[in-house]
Design a protein around this nucleic acid. Structure first.
Length: 267
DNA sequence: CCCAACTCCTGGGCGC
DNA sequence: TGCGCCCAGGAGTTGG
């Protein structure tokens, strides 16, 4: 499921050829989730940025195409538009690079939106999203303060995108494990928040370097799998020994999300 | 404002 | 072999 590292990997692959291209034609699956694709017909892409798990494509007419990949979305250049699960596509005027880009999404949890540049009021999560975890505004003090604003479980708060942007189920479990923080904790001490901060930076940085985590559906734009699934130390390892203390990792359901943690060393 | 519950989707894994 | 069931899950929506 695409989280920050997966979206950042895709962004880096798209930006070099997508910037400067003009949309000649577009079409989509007849769902409000995808029909905004055609709204940028005629516009030229001037930037390809990312905020959390959202991909932001700025246009020359001061709008943005906002792409969320949901669970199973992928962006594939030069992919046949009549293949199954193609939910939207854009064709570009002649230029350097591929002639078209396809949004493929099996489960249709992804969505597209075209907004005035920077105006995210119609996208609630993006509107209230926390700082970029790999940017200067994400600090131990900021994370500690952000988590104190709610008594919801730490993992639930991370998944809300409000304390910090871009963390999903996989990297939440990984970060809590590295930080020795129990995902079900409702309050964190400053040292715990400091460890969690460092762990979030570490897991996301590593995953970006590895091109993202492919569990099933995530693909890079050339169709290849990411490599980070070989580096996971907690997520998906329920029943296996904790790499730190040897106790069996436990799996439970936390606010409707599968959660794996070590009951011995995550306190 | 906050929060919990519900909803959207479909392929894949499982039991029988 | 094939059927039916249920799970995975990010975030938008709704209602309290």
């Amino acid at each position: 499921m695409p989280e920050l590292p997966e979206v950042e990997t895709i962004r880096r692959e798209l930006a070099p050829w997508l910037i400067g291209r003009t949309v000649a034609a577009a079409d989509s699956h007849p769902s409000i989730k995808f029909t905004p694709a055609i709204e940028i017909t005629g516009a030229t892409i001037e930037s390809v940025e990312r905020r959390g798990k959202y991909l932001l494509c700025g246009t020359d007419d001061r709008r943005e195409l906002v792409v969320h990949l949901g669970m199973t979305g992928s962006l594939l250049p030069d992919f046949p538009t009549d293949e199954p699960y193609v939910r939207a596509w854009w064709r570009f005027e002649a230029g350097r690079g591929p002639d078209d880009l396809v949004f493929r999404d099996v489960r249709r949890f992804g969505r597209l939106r075209v907004v005035d540049a920077g105006d995210y009021r119609s996208i609630p999560t993006l509107h209230t999203i926390g700082p970029e975890p790999l940017g200067p505004d994400f600090t131990p003090t900021q994370l500690h303060a952000a988590l104190k604003r709610s008594t919801r479980r730490v993992k639930t708060q991370l998944l809300s995108q409000r304390p910090v942007a871009g963390v999903g189920n996989i990297y939440a479990d990984e970060a809590c494990w590295i930080a020795r923080v129990r995902p079900s904790a409702r309050t964190l001490s400053k040292p715990q928040a400091t460890r969690l901060h460092a762990a979030i930076v570490e897991v996301l940085t590593t995953a970006v370097a590895n091109g993202g985590t492919t569990l099933r559906d995530y693909r890079r734009t050339d169709g290849r799998e990411g490599d980070n699934q070989h580096h996971l130390r907690c997520y998906g390892r329920g029943g296996l020994p904790c790499a730190r203390c040897g106790a069996g990792l436990r799996t439970t359901t936390l606010d409707a999300r599968t959660t794996t943690w070590c009951a011995r060393c995550q306190r």
